[in-house]
């Protein structure tokens, strides 16, 4: 791990973009909607005013919403592994980086995921301000980038940036940039600053208490049913959740046979577990809502992943039409006697 001084974020970004295709959160189509978009060589360098939380986390770069697994050409099954060109994701916030680390582990043996993942270098960015609905400090997912979660990390210090290398691949990308090594105290200062930024986040006692109640099985079944009634099975939470990974697959006809496509699924859908016989072990919406939050907050998963399945990004709250995103649910859970 080494640290350098960086004059501006744009300097690093444009240097990296000259080497490989680079994706970074940008406002799409002259709007105020941040999306993951390629940095175009054709447009002049855009200034980065603040780190943006894009609508989607970064998961679709490795686990795309729809992906062909294999083809059947009429005689045999042919695996179709992706052959991705190297790329860089720039400006990934800590919550989304923690989710990438979580999915790296979940998809450890998945060749499709791993092919895309191995072709990608991650440039993380430390968040200096709380974002709307975000609670990463409560679930140990931010606000600063955790060690080992990115190839490079950018950290603002006054009018300049601290650039920390976390992998040799990341450091190799810096070749050609004439950077001054940062003083040790810059790094110490970063460490001591994180609690101060974390302290600016609004109180999240409802999340803490909710996690406790879920793990002590103290949530009444009726409350799950009541909240289940509010689940419109839209799949918004599972689409935007950075750690959600459920998929289904189906055969699509193509010219000379079929291809098997896997696509994102949602455990909130009624038929997610329905068997061919019609039997459904999770037929009640309340069961499915409970399952979703169990999967995000049960201690059981810490054994495997070293952390909760929730990284505190708050996207589910924003996209849930039924008012059962993370804050709404945890407030109700924590309010039960």
């Amino acid at each position: 791990m080494r640290a350098f001084l960086l004059e501006s974020l744009e300097q690093l970004r444009d240097h990296l973009a000259a080497q490989r295709p680079l994706f970074t959160p940008q406002f799409a189509a002259d709007s105020s909607e941040p999306s993951w978009l390629p940095l175009s060589h054709n447009t002049p360098s855009v200034a980065i005013e603040q780190p943006l939380l894009p609508a989607y986390p970064a998961k679709q770069f490795f686990f795309p919403e729809r992906e062909i697994l294999f083809r059947f050409d009429g005689t045999d099954f042919k695996e179709t592994l992706p052959k991705p060109a190297p790329q860089i994701l720039f400006g990934v916030r800590s919550c989304d980086l923690c989710a990438i680390a979580y999915q790296d582990q979940f998809f450890q043996q998945d060749p499709y995921y791993q092919a895309r993942r191995k072709a990608t270098l991650l440039v993380g960015i430390d968040c200096q301000l709380p974002c709307e609905g975000g609670f990463c400090p409560t679930v140990d997912a931010g606000p600063f980038v955790r060690d080992g979660m990115a190839d490079l990390v950018c950290h603002q210090q006054g009018d300049h940036w601290l650039l920390i290398t976390q992998t040799s691949e990341g450091e190799a990308l810096l070749e050609g940039l004439d950077l001054k090594a940062a003083a040790e105290e810059g790094i110490t200062q970063r460490r001591s600053q994180e609690p101060q930024v974390a302290a600016q986040f609004p109180s999240a006692t409802h999340i803490e208490r909710g996690i406790q109640r879920i793990n002590q099985s103290q949530v009444p079944a009726e409350l799950w049913q009541t909240m289940g009634l509010q689940c419109l099975s839209c799949s918004g939470c599972t689409s935007l959740c950075p750690t959600c990974s459920c998929f289904t697959s189906y055969d699509r006809p193509v010219d000379d046979g079929f291809e098997r496509e896997r696509c994102w699924d949602s455990c909130l859908y009624d038929a997610f577990q329905r068997e061919a016989s019609g039997h459904n072990p999770s037929a009640a919406a309340g069961q499915r809502v409970e399952r979703f939050w169990f999967h995000k907050f049960s201690d059981e998963y810490i054994k495997t992943f070293g952390r909760y399945g929730c990284t505190g990004c708050g996207r589910c709250e924003k996209t849930c039409p039924g008012v059962i995103g993370v804050h709404s649910v945890m407030k109700r859970i924590s309010a039960t006697p």
């Binding site: 998809f107 043996q109 459920c246 998929f247 289904t248 577990q273 329905r274 068997e275 072990p281 059981e300």
Partner: peptide, 19 residues
């Protein structure tokens, strides 16, 4: 037990039973 087993390798999520 019977569940809707889909991928067979613990990835697709369909056959969950608790954790």
């Amino acid at each position: 037990l019977e569940r809707r087993m889909h991928c067979g390798v613990g990835e697709c999520g369909h056959c969950y039973l608790g954790s």
